[in-house]
Nucleic acid binder design. Structure first.
Lengths: 411, 411
DNA sequence: GAGGTTTTTTCGAGCAGTGAAAATAATGCT
DNA sequence: AGCATTATTTTCACTGCTCGAAAAAACCTC
């Protein structure tokens, strides 16, 4: 049974967490600044810092760096994360590539490996083995950090199984089915966490634009798939509170276009690259979706539509309509103040905006509260990486912070 | 700035809240039982109880009532809420009635007034004045409690304005527009809170069936309107975390049937009583919705459909389809394990189940995770009242608990 | 080097929670 | 009736945390 009892121990944990997260979002700071941000007294900050320094989780920075104008008084000694305190391994799996990153405890990228992925990849190599292989490469390339790998975080697409040990379904060929997270955890003896890409997008965009950081935002990815993450007042929410949704596979038209997932009428079947292409070239929408669309082909389609090509314009109109009605339906349950489009399709926002806004206008919620602000951000890789890294480092913080001396009380 | 600092004060508050909510859900209990439930030590429970007793928030019950079989040992002295510690006034506004209830601090109904409401009611009397009038009736009828009215809670339908002082839109004629909550608060000098009916349904069903209390449930009201509340692992979530949604006005078919809200194609336009009636009698779906459907007319329609009448069956099929696709779209964002239908339309679940399930089956999420359990509960008034009462009493608990001696630290 | 300014640490007080032991209140057995 | 048994509740000594205020430290200017 989870007990919410507050005792002096949990108080310390809470306040320690406050300081760590202030350090995460604000970078190295003086104790005085931390006291101001967290609301703790200087005395408490000092006490907690002594703990953290003793554990070598943080360190005092040597260069006082007093370029802030103030030249009077005792100079502040900045405290920041001890970079070598922990390393996390991040995997971003995509339909056509795997990006493996090693990040230190302060959030600095130490090493990175990019590997192409094909539909055959996970048929030939068991997913857990494939990941383990790349992790070993990192180990040999950065031997001094190898002992301090603390945690693995993986960005995936698809539907997680109940305990988060693997995927029940995924657009990435042959990835679903095995409990690769559990297997990898056993092979490496490190904790492994899976995060849905949509959730990370929602998480990452908060760091992208400070104005969005405490607003309610729906981040929609449009590209080879369609996905969405939700954040509300800073924290990600949604399906199982994971912040991710199956927006791409929300039904748009009953018995409609054939989707890659095998169902019919999903938003993705109209708004993902293959869907737009299919519409633009008047291919029957019951035709099997193209396995992968080269990015240049998609770009040239955008150019044609921008130049006024009727068929291409039609494709983007249908895509906008699908996204628009999907958002309108979503807004019956959530009402974000901002909608952010990311990914390759975000470049086509101007082609789709009309249909999106007219679909939204047809809903009661928008007619009363007004339309949310819709904007585009072209790069989707940065927020995903950022979100994944922050999740992983925050998890390390929690583990370091949580059971200080004694793990559990005698109950 | 909200500070999450933990100090000894907030620890006491937290643990006090733990005890109060254990008392709320478990009824009068011994200190030992409370220690077991909350996880606190006996010593702490005793200390907190002394505070609570001194404040006359709780009281020791005189009748030991040891019918629990155990006859040995020192008999437990049960502690329960001091009933006269506070009273809350609850208003449940509906399209055709207002129910005003007075409830004591232990959750016992003390007085109740039922008043019919017509579309003219709020045109003739300003909403805040109408409520204030009924509150005064309660005051004169129960003079000994009149001094201890602590809080007003109102169940409403429609879209709340940003600060919760009134409604931006409501299906109840002439109720939206004024900040009646703020006005009533000023007139009575009591805090007033508005709650959406859908949210209360979600809250109330948790008390209804203990098996649902920590599951994820979507509670759908089908009657003169269509509404939905969501609860997840015990806490209500959804639009602005309020637990309520605009499910009834989620788009079902672009440019479809005319809804009471003025938009077209809302789920409600197909699945509320007026929608089903319109379809069954082959009235064009662009015809203005009936202002109110007598319950016996709706009941006889159900009987006809159950007897096999083609037109009536068709009406319920379309309703089921609208609800089914709405739920399927909802499940792209949330995945409740249970779906509970309440209200007059719940009696027709067997007529709609087929269409609902086939719509759900067409979604990726259901084809992977399986269909949620769908069941009906006929009485919707009980969970709404229960939910409203619990919200109001919990708010009193919070206020009593929160600023114990000093309101704010000197910061 | 004295005086001023700002950061950091130290110190005593206060308060909350805990476990163990004591007090309390009833029953059951001889 | 007397005493052991059982279970609840309270008391007590102790630990840990935060806090405010005062002291110490570190650097600048004159």
């Amino acid at each position: 049974m989870t007990r919410n009892v507050s005792d002096s121990d949990s108080v310390r944990r809470q306040n320690r967490g406050l300081i760590l997260s202030a350090l995460r979002s604000g970078g190295p700071q003086s104790r005085t600044a931390l006291a101001g941000i967290t609301g703790l007294s200087h005395a408490s900050v000092t006490a907690i810092m002594q703990d953290l320094l003793a554990q070598r989780v943080v360190e005092e920075l040597t260069s006082p760096d007093r370029a802030d104008g103030r030249l009077r008084g005792r100079p502040a000694t900045l405290v920041g994360f001890h970079r070598a305190a922990a390393y996390v391994v991040l995997f971003e799996v995509d339909v056509n590539r795997l990006r493996t990153s090693l990040v230190d405890y302060s959030g600095v990228l130490v090493d990175r490996i990019e590997t192409p992925v094909t539909p055959q990849t996970f048929a030939q190599t068991r997913p857990s083995a494939f990941f383990a292989e790349h992790l070993e490469s990192l180990r040999t390339r950065t031997p001094k950090a190898a002992q301090t790998f603390r945690r693995i975080a993986i960005s995936v697409q698809g539907i997680l199984d109940r305990n988060g040990g693997g995927l029940k379904w995924s657009p990435i060929a042959n990835l679903a089915g095995t409990s690769f997270a559990d297997e990898l955890a056993e092979m490496t003896e490190l904790p492994v966490a899976l995060y849905k890409r949509g959730r990370l997008l929602a998480e990452g965009t908060r760091w992208l634009d400070p104005r969005l950081s405490d607003a309610s935002v729906a981040t929609v990815f449009v590209g080879s798939t369609v996905a969405m993450g939700l954040s509300q007042r800073g924290s990600t929410t949604g399906r199982d509170m994971g912040g991710a949704t199956e927006f791409g596979h929300m039904n748009h038209v009953p018995n409609g276009a054939l989707c890659r997932c095998g169902m019919r009428g999903c938003i993705e079947a109209y708004a993902a690259d293959y869907g737009i292409l299919r519409t633009s070239f008047s291919v029957p929408d019951t035709a099997a979706p193209a396995p992968a669309v080269p990015s240049q082909q998609f770009d040239s389609l955008i150019k044609r539509a921008e130049a006024g090509d009727r068929a291409a314009t039609h494709g983007f109109n249908l895509a906008g309509r699908a996204i628009g009605f999907g958002l309108s339906r979503m807004m019956a349950m959530f009402d974000p103040s901002h909608i952010l489009l990311v990914g390759p399709g975000a470049r086509a926002l101007s082609l789709m905006r009309g249909e999106i806004e007219s679909a939204l206008s047809a809903s009661l919620v928008c007619s009363i509260n007004g339309l949310p602000a819709i904007s585009a951000h072209l790069d989707e890789r940065e927020p995903i990486f950022r979100g994944l890294m922050m999740k992983a480092l925050a998890a390390v913080d929690d583990v370091d912070v949580a059971p200080n001396s004694h793990a559990l009380r005698s109950a």
